[in-house]
Every structure is written in C-alpha cells, then in structure tokens.
C-alpha cells in the first residue's frame, strides 16, 4: 500500500537524527513536524527568523507577532531563538542547517531540483527555496512519486525551471525511498505491498536496484492519522 502524505512525513521524521537543525518546506515537508520522534532534540528553523519553532498555536495560544514561514501561528519550544532575515539566511546559505526537507515538481536522477515555477502566464515566486537547496548540508525531497495525472516526477532531466542543480541527496515518496549517489539513483526502500517493478514503472529515470530492497517499517496509522493509503 502506498503511503499517505502524512505517511511520507512520518517516514522522513524517523530518519532525522538527534541534535539536527531542520528547515521544512511547504506541503508534505511541513507535516514532518507532527511526527518528530520523542527523545530526540530536533530544532525546526523557519526562514522568517525562528530556531526552535514548536507546534501550531491553539486558538488561546496565538501571538499575532509569531508565525512560521508557512504563515501559520506557531509556538516556540524552550530554548528557541528569534532573529532577523539576514541572520536567518546566513544560517541557511552558510551551511549551518543539517537537513532541509523540500517539496518538488521534478527531481532529476542526478539530484537537480525543480520546485518553484511552472512555465506559463503565472506570477513567478521563489521564496527561500533556492537558498535552502544550495545551503543545507542534506537536502531531502518529500513528494508523491507521480503527478495527479500519473506522470513521473523523478526524471532523467528536469523540464521545469531549476531551483538548484545536484542538490538532492534523498527522495521520499508514497512508493519508495531513493538516494542520489553521483550518477546513480538507488532504490533503498519500497512501501509495504509495493513492488520494485511498481516503482520502476512509475519512475522516469533508470534506477539502481540493490540485491535486497528493504520494505519500509511503518505503522498503518499514528495517533488517528492514516499513514498508509487504503
């Protein structure tokens, strides 16, 4: 069974190590914060000047001066710090974030990321994605394996405008976990009930298949949220 969007986020959260400093993009990446394993110190960075962002604020906790980069009213964890945008992007561009989890329109087999613009008569807007993609020590992508129309999002070459070249280390999808190693795109894990052939058929680039591909260890649900699609 493929993972839900929350399932992808849950799977990523399991891989974040203790004492990591992590920026989460919009969409599926933002869901990772809900599944951070207890017992690990993981500080969430937000572009608008937070290190140590906590859960979304309950209505009685809302501070009108405290949002994250998604525009959600949030809380702060003990030990959080606040700063201006120049310092925030020094953290990003200076290589101080241990991990970034970003969404994607397309990822190439070499780890090129396209995530910011669909060509056509639209307003372009990039935000912090280009800085994060070049600056974070490890860039992981969280995405559905294909588009809503079934087109592969993992491709030989990106056809959408690039966010950054050769920046992605790992790709977490509803079907699989893949890692980018130089010219090779390695299939590390498949979702429960998903076959290697399923993943190959839905991927637009050649995969390196190890002799034994692991099946993800993931519960069906977590605190009432379905992690596997029915």
């Amino acid at each position: 069974m493929p993972l839900t969007r929350e399932g992808i986020a849950y799977r990523i959260a399991q891989d974040l190590p203790d004492e990591s400093f992590v920026n989460l993009g919009t969409g599926i990446p933002s869901l990772v914060a809900r599944f951070l394993p207890p017992g690990k110190t993981i500080l969430i960075h937000s572009e608008n000047g937070i290190l140590g962002a906590g859960p979304k604020a309950r209505p009685d906790e809302i501070d009108p001066d405290l949002v994250n980069a998604n525009g959600d009213y949030v809380t702060l964890i003990p030990g959080a710090s606040l700063f201006d945008h120049a310092l925030s992007f020094a953290i990003i561009r200076g290589g101080h974030l241990t991990h970034a989890v970003l969404g994607a329109l397309q990822v190439s087999r070499r780890g090129d990321l396209a995530s910011w613009r669909i060509p056509g008569p639209r307003v372009p807007g990039v935000g912090g994605a280009m800085d994060i993609a070049v600056g974070a020590q490890r860039v992981w992508v969280a995405t559905m394996h294909t588009t809503d129309q079934g087109e592969p999002k993992i491709v030989e070459e990106c056809t959408y405008p690039l966010t950054a070249a050769r920046c992605v280390r790992r790709i977490y999808t509803d079907l699989a976990v893949l890692s980018v190693e130089g010219e090779q795109l390695i299939l590390e894990e498949v979702a429960p009930g998903v076959t290697v052939e399923d993943v190959v058929a839905r991927t637009g680039a050649p995969l390196t298949i190890p002799p034994a591909v692991r099946t993800m260890e993931i519960p069906t649900e977590f605190a009432g949220t379905a992690l596997l699609a029915p």
Partner: peptide, 14 residues
C-alpha cells in the same frame, strides 16, 4: 516584477 531568491533579496538590502 523583479523576483529574487529570499536570501539574495535580504542580502542585497543588507
């Protein structure tokens, strides 16, 4: 419109 990466936007101002 002149669209800039956010870190470039703030660093140009800095």
């Amino acid at each position: 419109l002149e669209v800039l990466p956010q870190g470039t936007f703030v660093e140009r101002i800095r």
